[in-house]
Design a protein around this nucleic acid. Structure first.
Lengths: 185, 185
DNA sequence: CCCATACCGTTCGGACACGAACGACCTTCC
DNA sequence: GGAAGGTCGTTCGTGTCCGAACGGTATGGG
């Protein structure tokens, strides 16, 4: 723990130390009885998730002027096939009102269609159009290639360990009912 | 200190197994040449981040009718002290237009004040009010207690490993300039 | 001195996000 | 068979979020 910062010493990426922001927090809040170990784990979860999401939006989604949520919507319908609107909302991980807006956006761009269920007049069934299917089938391999590129900074074993630890946390905070239908991308 | 338990046999499928949604994906996309290992690592990052964020919003923030972003804003000003608006935006991890809206919200609730910098008429300096400081000083220990509770589902060593792996991914996707000022909660 | 340049915060337009509430629709129980 | 209650998708209001663009402000070079 000999972290004497020398003048002009730049912390190059690749070291295993705390981020600059973390050091500032460590310094300012050291006098409080906080669980810093948990804080570094959880806060880096938010930080890294947001950074990778932005990376994906810029590299993969922006060329098609597709938002993150719209992309997840296409992906869900691609994997699951046609589904009711409330299932769509649950699978994407958004509320039903938000799902209405997202479906409207996707419909206006010709990616999905909505129709009423003849068996139950309350239901609305969402389905990918041909254009929507072609789009996600072209886009998802690119998305996964970026996932692979980002994850390659960890060993394969570390990738497995990371996924396992995250599943453990997920099971801790999410009710079992929501784990079956949460967002998957 | 990387004496992570490494049993000779890998975990059998089903025990430490994939989530239901992951199994569906595995089944539907098995015929495509995708990097599933990276996919499980990255997708669980998004899933778990969103789940924990909702957990925090419901358990810690909802009683004060405070949004996630507003909470981060208060926290940033608490740790860093008064700062220029563009620094505030960078520290919270939002764009400058979004920061204008968030500051307006926080100002209307009496948590922060905005004033022009007499030295440079372009700048706006944001600062926590007394009410804002009292609020975050009451709220953050509760927030950290929930972080600690969630993280307790991992061993202390695992928490450290998780944070280290996430920092590694973060450094891979984020330009060095944004690492100093990214959102920290 | 003035103008090009650059930067700051804000505004605008569009999409996302949620809780509350509403009309339409189905089921259930008298 | 008709009212009661539940569920569905949607609408409304508010707040978050971004890229593009605008007015205000500083600074440098001519």
């Amino acid at each position: 723990m000999s972290d004497a910062p020398r003048p002009g010493d730049r912390h190059l990426p690749g070291e295993d130390g705390l981020l600059p922001a973390e050091r500032k927090v460590q310094e300012e809040l050291a006098h409080l009885p906080l669980d810093f170990r948990a804080m570094w784990a959880i806060s880096n979860l938010f930080r890294t998730s947001a950074a990778i999401r932005r990376h994906m939006e810029a590299r993969v989604l922006a060329p098609d002027r597709l938002s993150w949520t719209s992309f997840v919507g296409l992906w869900v319908l691609w994997v699951w096939g046609e589904m009711e609107a409330r299932e769509f909302a649950a699978a994407v991980g958004i509320s039903r009102p938000t799902a209405t807006g997202v479906m409207t956006t996707l419909e206006s761009r010709g990616f999905v269609t909505r129709r009423k269920d003849p068996k139950d007049g309350r239901m609305v069934i969402v389905e990918l159009t041909r254009v929507g299917r072609v789009t996600i089938e072209d886009l998802f391999p690119k998305f996964n290639a970026e996932e692979s590129s980002v994850a390659s900074h960890l060993d394969p074993e570390q990738q497995d360990d990371l996924a396992a630890m995250l599943r453990s946390l997920l099971r801790a905070v999410a009710p079992a009912s929501t784990q079956d239908s949460g967002p998957v991308v």
